[in-house]
């Protein structure tokens, strides 16, 4: 009985009731969740603002890339168009007279893709993503979206690219 009445010394060293401690921390946790929720909403708003303020610019005009005979059938050439931001592109010579141009950044985690003529597919070596070399559509693997495509025009032995016209998003 006497032992029960006597407080152990740690109680005076740490004079906070357990009940009190847990009660307060749950309130704080809930408030923190509220704060976090607000932060997430702000982040989402930032995305909206960003896409309003800095819309992605379409590529303007036609750009000369190379001579037609520089890229053999089944070959691939990497090029860049110097503008506001330098995006690496690839030019693919599928067959005689069949050209395609895509962004080289994989839509999964932005690795550089390459054209594999032996497979007839565009390969992303990072996580084995494969794209259709005609349309840029994902055939296999983790990439969530097709590769963005440019339109290719060959005039008098010279290869030009321009942005894809809106009404035909994929060149089939």
């Amino acid at each position: 009985m006497a032992e029960k009445d006597k407080d152990p010394t740690w109680k005076s060293d740490f004079p906070i009731d357990q009940e009190e401690a847990t009660h307060v921390s749950r309130r704080e946790f809930a408030k923190f969740l509220g704060l976090f929720s607000g932060a997430l909403a702000l982040g989402n708003g930032a995305i909206v603002l960003k896409s309003l303020a800095f819309p992605d610019k379409e590529l303007e005009g036609e750009h000369f890339i190379c001579e037609e005979n520089e890229v053999p059938v089944g070959g691939m050439k990497q090029f860049e168009i110097h503008g506001t931001k330098d995006i690496p592109y690839i030019l693919i010579h599928l067959e005689e007279g069949e050209w395609r141009a895509f962004e080289q950044k994989c839509t999964h985690l932005a690795c550089a893709v390459r054209y594999r003529h032996d497979l007839g597919q565009i390969e992303c070596p990072c996580h084995q993503g494969f794209f259709d070399p005609r349309t840029g559509v994902v055939i296999q693997g983790p990439p969530p979206r097709p590769l963005p495509q440019l339109e290719v025009a060959v005039k008098e032995g010279k290869v030009y690219v321009k942005s894809m016209s809106k009404d035909k998003p994929y060149n089939v």
């Binding site: 509220g34 929720s37 607000g38 909403a41 989402n44 708003g45 909206v48 896409s51 839509t107």
Partner: peptide
């Protein structure tokens, strides 16, 4: 946003804001 889908950005912002208000 990477795919220029502005509608989704706007709709999720509206939803997120509403949820934040509910949590407040």
């Amino acid at each position: 946003a990477l795919d220029d889908n502005f509608g989704i950005a706007l709709a999720t912002f509206g939803g997120s804001l509403a949820l934040a208000l509910v949590s407040f």
